[in-house]
Simulated scan of single mutants.
Amino acid sequence: MPHPAPHPVRLADEITHQLGQLADHLSQLPAAQALQVIARVLDPDTGVLSGVTHLVATGSVFAKNQAERGTLPAEVWLALGRAANELHTIGCDLDEHTDTLTAATRPVNTNPVPSPAAAPLVVRRHR
């Protein structure tokens, strides 16, 4: 039976290259477009993060089978499993913010609205 992807290593290299290009473009995009890209990347159903999580989880299943056969150390399987779990947790943490990112990309009404004020990122202690 032929492989479903004739050149999987080349495919992985191309995806890695394209992710690098996307990161480079992201820093150059106007804010609205950058938010669209980030929201798309973080989309819990079809985003890049969920795709990478699925890929690592699939790699973990493969590594488990190989570890059971003795061709890979069990540590490899465990590390991939932990990585898949961590990526899933990160995705869940970010999922609560994807609605905000998506909403920020929608056009708003044309009524003039004052610009949002910058919020301090550091809370100062009072003595």
Rank of each mutant, 00 (worst) to 15 (best):
G81V: 08
W77G: 00
Q66M: 05
A79L: 15
E75Y: 00
R40K: 08
R106K: 07
W77I: 00
A12S: 10
G81S: 11
I15E: 00
A79Y: 14
G51L: 02
L87C: 11
N109T: 10
S60R: 03
V41N: 00
A34L: 04
G47S: 13
V76M: 05
Q33F: 00
G51M: 04
P30E: 07
A104Q: 08
L94K: 08
R69F: 07
S60H: 11
H88L: 05
P107G: 01
T58M: 03
G47C: 14
E86L: 13
G70S: 05
C92T: 13
G20L: 10
Q33G: 03
K64Q: 11
T71H: 07
R40I: 12
Q36L: 04
N65M: 13
L94H: 09
G91K: 04
A83L: 14
T46I: 09
A63P: 00
V9T: 12
L49W: 03
V108H: 13
T46D: 06
R106L: 14
G20K: 10
L80Q: 06
D93F: 06
A39C: 01
H17S: 09
V37I: 04
D95R: 10
P73C: 03
V48S: 05
V41L: 04
R106A: 02
P107S: 03
E14R: 12
C92V: 13
E14V: 12
D24M: 13
P30H: 14
W77E: 15
V48I: 14
A63I: 01
I15Q: 01
A57W: 03
G81I: 07
Q18G: 01
E86R: 13
T105C: 09
Q28H: 07
A84S: 07
A103Y: 10
G59N: 06
L72H: 10
T58K: 02
E96W: 14
L19E: 11
V48K: 01
L22N: 03
R69C: 12
T110C: 12
S27E: 11
A31V: 13
S50C: 13
V48Y: 11
Q66T: 00
T53A: 09
